[in-house]
Design a protein around this nucleic acid. Structure first.
Lengths: 132, 132
DNA sequence: TGTTTGTTATATATATAGTATAACAAGAAT
DNA sequence: ATTCTTGTTATACTATATATATAACAAACA
């Protein structure tokens, strides 16, 4: 797991951290049961504050990606993340609508959009090969 | 154009406003050349501040969705929004990656994802029928 | 008994979001 | 010319989010 942050963008650091970890799980570079670095270790490693890491971890816990034990630290959920229910899909749809509308206005039709999504799925599914 | 805002969510009002207008353009409820309400009129109508509306309009102008004339006000770009270039697609891809990784972790495969995207395209493309 | 873990509590600095007034400047209508 | 409406600019203020900095607490483990 290489964590690369962009301090120029307006995306909060803790969000980028969450994203990197979730992508790591999707790519299976992070497997169920794997331990994440302690909040202090990771913070010091990246050069950010302990609380920023903690915020990311807390939200990952809230969303079911990790479990946090009192002393063992933060662990990728051995049961995997909770499966998407209808409510999740509904929220996903709502969050995608503005982006898709924007793309549509700019001439990206359904097929072009699919091509982009396809490429991302490829990257996430096949990218793990080098790590197995 | 009905503009419905959610004051509970953490999505900024001016973002929601932008989204609604972009969706309106995508659905062709707002056509090239159409005038938008003045910043004061819309602000008063929705019950928000003039500057919040202005911020949304400025960004829509920046992104090429509207033109702003000194006295005529804000007008949907008669030439349509600028077509997506490679840079746009690259940014789109980067912004989609975390969401798709999240979905993938929750068991949404490519086909399920496509189904959701498909539904949104349907809604945007066919939804305009009642307005023609 | 230490050491490491997450956790909690303050405090501070900065940026963003939103509001509130007021005034300015250009175009259009009368 | 005058008036009205348009976007625009300038301040000021409040609230919230982000990020940092220290410090201390509590549980688990070696």
């Amino acid at each position: 797991m290489f964590i690369q942050l962009d301090f120029e963008t307006d995306i909060p650091i803790y969000e980028q951290l969450k994203d990197e970890i979730i992508i790591g799980i999707a790519k299976k570079e992070l497997k169920p049961g794997d331990r994440l670095p302690s909040v202090r270790a990771l913070a010091s490693d990246i050069g950010i504050n302990l609380h920023t890491v903690n915020k990311a971890y807390q939200q990952l816990k809230q969303e079911g990606f990790v479990l946090i034990h009192r002393q063992r630290g933060v662990v990728i959920n051995p049961d995997g993340a909770p499966k998407a229910d209808e409510q999740y899909k509904q929220k996903l749809k709502m969050s995608l609508r503005p982006t898709i509308a924007d793309s549509l206005c700019r001439g990206i039709d359904k097929e072009s959009y699919f091509t982009i999504v396809e490429a991302i799925y490829e990257e996430l599914l096949e990218g793990g090969k080098s790590n197995e």
